[in-house]
């Protein structure tokens, strides 16, 4: 359901890896089951590759049909998105802005919280506290997103109404909080791995120069782990941008170009989910628009994932 882009990308690379596995090729007289096993693995790998290519193909085909009716310039500059109006308008900006708002809000929650959690787990927690807290953070990753959405809509928003009276039943604020908590484990656990890879000698060197522990961590350990931490954050951004269930449930479905977090909004993903459910007829402009939005999401998600991988690898 979430992040179709990165999943598709990974599937293709798995297919490639399968093609290079020549080291363990069975000898000619091998049993039938052995030869059959190789075929089965090949079939699975090919299937994954075909699935990825099929998704890309469908998106490209449908988007091409869309762009034959709406110019890319209009898609990118028209300030409103009303595909079902009598004179439909297709400006993707409100959807992109909504997704960006959710991502920014979730990042504002998850980046500081996740990084500080990672630092605590890596450098301050005792063995027992560390194990319990790591399990708790990992548990957050296991919560289905629909549960986050349900909690945001039915508990977080009503609770916020006491503090922010103007808040709508559907609002970006609750969605940001819920998506932020959802991506928290990604930031915390991957940042912790990055910190764990910092050589112990670097920390000792900092201490040997007369610096206190917190200073060594902020001035030496975190800079040394900055690439890994940045990669963790980029992956978290990709997950937040691809998140559908939470934003659909908590933020509603109003495609408006408004920055007000107390109002509802409609992200790229929420549009896809809800328009798909309204079952537009194939060949119609709404049907084509759906694929175009999906393609934009796919490309954006893929770009962020590629960025994350590049940051994590480059040295």
């Amino acid at each position: 359901m979430t992040a179709g882009g990165p999943l598709g990308g990974r599937a293709t690379s798995v297919a490639h890896a399968g093609g290079h596995g020549a080291v363990l090729r069975p000898r000619r007289g091998a049993a039938l089951s052995e030869r059959l096993a190789g075929r089965v693995f090949l079939a699975c790998a090919v299937l994954a590759g075909v699935a990825a290519m099929a998704v890309v193909g469908v998106l490209a085909w449908e988007s091409a049909a869309f762009f034959s009716q709406v110019s890319p310039a209009r898609l990118l500059t028209d300030p409103s998105w009303t595909p079902l109006a009598e004179e439909p308008r297709f400006g993707i900006l409100p959807l992109v802005a909504a997704t960006a708002q959710i991502v920014a809000g979730a990042a504002a929650v998850a980046f500081p919280l996740g990084l500080l959690t990672a630092i605590y787990l890596q450098y301050y927690a005792g063995p027992r506290t560390g194990t319990v807290l790591t399990a708790a953070v990992t548990l957050l990753a296991a919560v289905p997103t629909v549960v986050y959405g349900y909690v945001a809509l039915n508990f977080v928003t009503p609770a916020l109404r006491g503090i922010l009276p103007g808040i709508g039943a559907f609002n970006a604020f609750s969605a940001c909080l819920a998506v932020g908590v959802m991506i928290l484990p990604t930031v915390a656990l991957l940042s912790r791995s990055a910190l764990a890879a910092v050589p112990h000698s670097l920390l000792e060197t900092g201490m040997a120069l007369g610096a206190a522990r917190a200073r060594v961590l902020t001035r030496a350990a975190i800079p040394a782990a900055s690439r890994g931490i940045a990669a963790a954050m980029a992956l978290a951004v990709a997950r937040a941008a691809g998140e559908t269930m939470i934003v659909t449930l908590a933020a509603g479905n109003q495609a408006r170009l408004t920055g007000n977090p107390l109002e509802g909004l409609r992200t790229l993903t929420a549009f896809i989910a809800q328009t798909s459910m309204s079952d537009p007829a194939p060949g119609t402009i709404e049907h084509h628009a759906l694929a175009t939005v999906a393609a934009v999401l796919f490309l954006g998600g893929y770009a962020v994932c590629a960025l994350a991988r590049w940051i994590g690898r480059a040295r």
Binding site: P199, S201, L202, E204, T205, G206, A208, L209, G210, A211, A212, R215, R219, A220, P223, A224
Partner: peptide, 25 residues
């Protein structure tokens, strides 16, 4: 002051490395 056997350089410039200790104090 000690220069450990496995002394590590901080990522960054020569200046950053030299300034680390004085800044900390």
């Amino acid at each position: 002051g000690v220069v450990l056997r496995e002394s590590a350089l901080f990522p960054g410039s020569i200046f950053h490395n030299v300034a680390f200790g004085p800044r900390a104090s």
